[in-house]
């Protein structure tokens, strides 16, 4: 198996090497997609990793959409390509409009860096289909703005369309519906605040993150020009 995964690097991204290491350890191929590039090349799925894209100026993820790579990623995603946004990558996807809602400051105003129990909800997304609904996963969070919020109308749509991929067992940041991860309606774009690339060995306290990233290989991967 050698699925080819692109891992995006903005100025300020800091989880790209962990993501690449994980993908390679799982038997995949991974390459950096530089934010200034206007093509995603021949990758078959894309990870937008965590960090502080463009310093999180204005709002988390707000400036990233002006990077040329985001136009290419939108094209890739809109033609069915699988995109996984992790933490800041999730914020970038909401700011770009590829996923609904927004991430605001944690309730309690604390930066949270801790292991969390997550419950798999919908299994209809490209990542979710590797899991069973109701499964529990141990994956850490590491964020200040991870409190997912959306309008009541959007929340109804998320529920009705099976777009809620992950919920926190004990909602640490105040997210509406304890949401930890969602997908778009089509299921090929997924965003999650927890960091699967940091739950990849028993030494790190959990290996559940491997299953999230290996789902990229099994997903509805698609070649794109």
């Amino acid at each position: 198996m050698s699925r080819h995964i692109g891992v995006v690097q903005f100025p300020g991204t800091n989880c790209e090497q962990d993501s690449i290491d994980t993908i390679k350890n799982l038997g995949g191929q991974a390459e950096i997609l530089w934010h200034g590039s206007d093509t995603v090349g021949s990758v078959e799925a894309i990870v937008i990793p965590g960090g502080f894209a463009h310093g999180d100026y204005l709002r988390c993820g707000a400036i990233a959409r002006f990077s040329p790579i985001m136009t290419a990623i939108s094209r890739f995603a809109n033609s069915g390509g699988v995109v996984l946004g992790i933490c800041n990558g999730f914020q970038v996807l909401t700011e770009t409009g590829l996923l609904p809602g927004a991430l605001q400051k944690n309730v309690g105003l604390k930066f949270l860096c801790q292991m969390e129990s997550l419950i798999v909800d919908s299994t209809s997304s490209a990542i979710g289909k590797s899991f069973k609904s109701g499964e529990q996963l141990q994956i850490p969070i590491n964020h200040f703005e991870g409190n997912y919020v959306c309008s009541p109308e959007v929340m109804c749509e998320l529920e009705a369309n099976g777009q809620i991929f992950l919920r926190y067992e004990s909602n640490p940041n105040g997210s509406i519906g304890s949401i930890a991860g969602i997908s778009n309606k089509e299921g090929n774009i997924v965003g999650m605040m927890p960091h699967p690339e940091r739950a990849t060995s028993v030494l790190l306290g959990s290996m559940d993150g491997n299953r999230i990233l290996s789902a990229l290989f099994e997903g509805n991967v698609k070649n794109n020009s």
Partner: peptide
């Protein structure tokens, strides 16, 4: 379109 995020 940019200065605010109208969701929040």
């Amino acid at each position: 379109r940019f200065l605010t995020n109208p969701v929040i």
